[in-house]
Design a protein around this nucleic acid. Structure first.
Lengths: 370, 370
DNA sequence: GCAATCACGGAAATCCATTTCCATTTCTGT
DNA sequence: ACAGAAATGGAAATGGATTTCCGTGATTGC
């Protein structure tokens, strides 16, 4: 008959006197090693090292434990801690495309804000594919991230809404938080740029330059961001007593180029407002290809103020969206929710700012006339 | 005397007949719920659900367990699993700046490749600050991510190297993997673009256009990427029997603009090779400001082929670096290391490709002469 | 002087899936 | 028919930190 031998982990050898670790180190120190070194119980060691424990620990004891922890260069095992506290110090951000400068800036702001609060950020780039996005969200659900930021708008697809709201419920169920950074049909807490106001501002700017045939190239009608920007454009046009003209295309450079070509054949506008800088880039490119000067023949304005375009020629007039700030605000919101002290309104609108550069000018080409 | 009452979790109520969950659901199902439903032990339930368990489970039993799991919509708790297996299905990528298109593309490739293998990707953007990067790496260490990809080169700083190699050791110690996507002093497995070859190619291209005063604006000498590109440039110049002229600046638009201004005062080159597209953008911008035509007066070439610049005017001649592919290769490499079957050479070089567009032309302005 | 509090520390339960070790059966081969 | 192997399932240990519940001694209150 075999006697049950109580298995016990061999103790971690203490750093030897010469300061170098002995060759026998084979595992990372755990809390019980610290407790043994400090000659206290596991419980006390845990409490001594937890800065916001409400259980009192005498200073002498705490000092002993901290000393032992330092000596062993102890680091709490995050998996064990996560298992117990049911919370990982990780959030996620879901974007349509990380390499789109708009989202890249948001990600930059979000990751920076998260890291100063001790959170890591998982980035999920859906490539605008509903199935990919859903797969990501499922992975996020299963990994029980503390919260998810949806930076892009919802995608149009049969399954999408049903599945997404299922996942959202599941996230809420385990105590995770959700924040949106673009208008969506789901009623999630949101930090949004003032799309409508910005579009109004830029349209008014074009009107004030004397333009009356101002066309807009917008993104797909299914994206609420497009719709909000269209709304602002329509408001400003109506206020000025002008006819609107909207052409829709993909939210890409190529899409915008095609849209412009169509526009030139039909309306021959003197000013074009593109619903995003990316589209404005496509417009500029196509106009140049057609031998049309910007801004002398046609003015072009964009939206977002993605970095880099200020160095183009002509530098793009646009609306500055505080993208990094939006990402940071999303994180702040998420963490407030997790702390249970999110008392703010559910949707927070962030102001945007008109940035006038070279791609818009007076009707008739003021520069040429000077 | 109090009797020790065996505390037991209340069982999860089974989905009621009407298909909706009863209001009493308050916790997620765990494996023991599945086991109870299927009337098997915890062990068997675990094995039945683990597709690559080597312990045999009869088909009948497995079917019962799977059915129970489905009925309860059971999802294994990732923290418990991670604690036991000592491995989280998460990798990390450290970049200098996520909103720099070069890194954004790499991140896109990496996250996509990771997700198809079931890994999430944490993104860390150091903003080129050694302290920030080190803080991130410490967080990554503590969170025991499976592997870390360093997309950018090492940063110059006193602490940096010592601390970084300490963290690297620590990562290796817990079984994590490391891969670099830029040349670094640390001897880590690497997937690198052919910086030297690309620089040679683009320089030869400029030579073949008849230029002889070809200057290079490079990044800081501390970045090995700059140095490799300088080396390729120098080789090609030497082969053509030409004098080299290198000006160093920050790896930014602004830095390049300043460098160009300096260059114009001293050397008056007829062609400029910028060590990155970002710098080329600065060069183009500054040249235009100075009233110098590209390519008629001066040819400009870049490196990287970041998206968007093909729509500029003039469209930039550059060297295409397969950034997304690099990111994906990094992930593949990382996972191979984790599987212990990384038999390839330690450094893998990825070929690059010259992309001739409009910003380079024959000496003297061929276009004007036609 | 006696009860009620407080300060402090510890044993054991808990989080939940995986894995080791063993105990049955049920085949094999001879 | 019987030793040995294979197939199958279970009890319990494991991973490591947090937290609940309790016990002791010291202090305060009246």
């Amino acid at each position: 008959m075999k006697l049950p031998v109580p298995r016990q982990r061999p103790p971690v050898p203490v750093r030897s006197a010469n300061g170098r670790s002995p060759a026998t180190v084979r595992r990372l120190p755990i809390l019980s090693d610290v407790a043994r070194q400090a000659e206290v119980s596991l419980t006390t060691a845990s409490r001594a090292l937890d800065p916001d424990s409400d259980h009192p620990v005498s200073e002498r004891t705490r000092a002993r434990v901290v000393a032992a922890a330092t000596r062993l260069s102890y680091r709490p095992n995050p998996m064990a801690r996560a298992l117990r506290t049911r919370r990982v110090p990780t959030i996620a951000i879901v974007v349509h495309d990380v390499s789109d400068p708009y989202f890249a800036e948001i990600v930059r702001g979000a990751t920076a804000a998260a890291s100063v609060r001790g959170f890591l950020t998982v980035v999920c780039s859906s490539d605008r594919d509903p199935a990919t996005e859903l797969r990501y969200v499922e992975m996020l659900c299963e990994s029980r991230v503390s919260g998810v930021i949806f930076a892009g708008g919802g995608l149009e697809e049969a399954h999408y809404h049903r599945s997404m709201s299922g996942y959202a419920r599941s996230i809420a169920h385990y105590g995770g938080a959700i924040v949106a950074l673009a208008p969506r049909s789901e009623r999630w807490p949101a930090e949004l740029p003032d799309n409508q106001g910005g579009a109004r501002m830029v349209t008014e700017h074009l009107v004030s330059l004397g333009h009356s045939r101002i066309a807009m190239i917008s993104g797909p009608a299914t994206l609420r961001t497009s719709r909000e920007r269209e709304l602002g454009y329509a408001q400003a046009m109506k206020a000025a007593g002008l006819e609107t003209s909207i052409v829709r295309a993909d939210f890409t450079v190529g899409g915008a180029a095609k849209a412009i070509a169509r526009l030139l054949r039909s309306d021959s506008p003197t000013a074009v407002f593109a619903a995003s800088d990316t589209m404005a880039l496509g417009a500029l490119s196509e106009l140049r290809r057609s031998g049309i000067d910007v801004p002398d023949d046609v003015s072009v304005a964009g939206f977002d103020d993605i970095p880099g375009l200020e160095f183009m020629h002509p530098a793009l007039t646009t609306v500055r969206v505080p993208m990094a700030e939006l990402g940071a605000a999303g994180v702040a919101r998420l963490l407030r929710q997790l702390d249970g002290k999110d008392t703010a309104t559910r949707t927070q609108i962030h102001p945007v700012q008109l940035v006038v550069r070279e791609s818009t000018g007076r009707l008739g080409g003021a520069r040429g006339a000077v």
